[in-house]
Amino acid sequence: MAQRLVFPDAYAAADLITFAGRAARAGDGAVHLRASGGTLVTAAAPLLRQGLLDSTPTIIGMRLLPVDPELDCDLVVEAALLQIAHDDAEAVELPETAVPPPLWSAAEVPRSGWSHAGTLDLAVLAERAQWGMSAVAHALPIDPGDLIVQAVRGKIWSAPDEDLGGLPRGVAFVARTLGFIGEDAEDVGVRTCGRWTRLTLRRGHVLLRGPAHLGMTEVRETGHVAALVD
């Protein structure tokens, strides 16, 4: 029998499959699964740098789900191979084999020491994501090769965006790609810790490692329960 992740309800199991499905269509198609103390941290990198000359920023999306308190794991799998167990809607079957951990999955995200750096309007985040995707589509020639696609994406998603407080436009792309942008209005909290910047949305976190971007408006607490310790 395949190894399983057991969740407290079918909703949480389906949530993981939805996240994995989105991750499978972007980046390297891998999802990092870390479970301990009843929490499953799921992470993927819809944007990642490929090669020394690639300007694409590596940006990680992270979502936290309740899971069996006795489960303890740390592995990377092909997202497209995760599936709901045929005999249990509250369990997700893992692939028979894991994949070699990509570099982004080894990054040590700080668990404490985060400082408030501002807020972003969710509607602005959604608009900049849509603008960037349109810009990529219009900039690509007919039948472009992989190198051209990567160059265009890198240029557009790595560009600092004034509407996002100087953060690279790719943070908006990752938030949209992984389903973190909902229909309800929301203030997106921005926090920094050393070279890390974190956007906290109700549906997940977007993490960028690079120069800290400051100068945004003061953060207003929205009542979101952030699983990453401040």
Rank of each mutant, 00 (worst) to 15 (best):
M1P: 07
R4G: 07
V6A: 11
P8K: 07
D9V: 05
A10Y: 03
A12C: 14
D15Q: 15
T18N: 09
R22W: 07
A24C: 07
A26Q: 10
G27Y: 01
G29Q: 01
A30G: 07
L33A: 08
G37R: 00
T39A: 12
L40A: 14
V41C: 14
V41K: 13
A43M: 14
A45C: 05
A45D: 11
L47W: 06
L48I: 12
L48K: 06
R49G: 04
G51F: 12
L52F: 06
D54K: 06
P57R: 03
P57Y: 01
T58P: 04
I59N: 05
G61F: 07
M62F: 11
M62R: 15
V67K: 01
D68K: 04
E70V: 09
E70F: 10
C73I: 13
D74I: 01
V76W: 10
V76D: 03
E78D: 12
A79F: 05
A79S: 06
L81A: 15
I84G: 03
H86E: 14
A91M: 05
A91Y: 01
P95C: 06
P95Y: 05
E96D: 13
T97H: 01
V99H: 10
P102V: 00
L103R: 12
W104P: 13
W104S: 07
A106V: 03
E108S: 05
E108D: 14
S112V: 05
G113S: 11
W114Q: 09
T119S: 15
L120M: 03
D121M: 10
A123P: 04
A123I: 08
V124G: 07
V124K: 11
A126D: 10
R128Q: 09
Q130I: 10
Q130K: 05
W131I: 12
W131Y: 13
G132S: 11
G132I: 04
V136E: 10
H138L: 12
A139D: 10
A139E: 13
D143W: 10
A151C: 08
I156M: 05
I156N: 08
P160R: 09
D161R: 09
E162C: 07
L164P: 03
L164C: 02
G165R: 01
G165W: 06
G165H: 07
L167W: 00
P168G: 04
A175K: 11
R176Y: 06
F180R: 04
I181N: 06
E183K: 13
D184F: 13
D187S: 10
V188Y: 07
V190Q: 10
R191T: 01
C193I: 11
G194D: 04
R195W: 02
R195N: 01
T197G: 02
T200S: 14
T200K: 11
L201I: 07
R202Q: 13
R202P: 02
G204Q: 03
V206S: 06
L207R: 00
L208T: 00
G215K: 04
M216L: 14
T217M: 08
V219S: 10
T222V: 00
V225W: 13
A226N: 15
A226Q: 12
A227T: 13
A227F: 06
L228M: 12
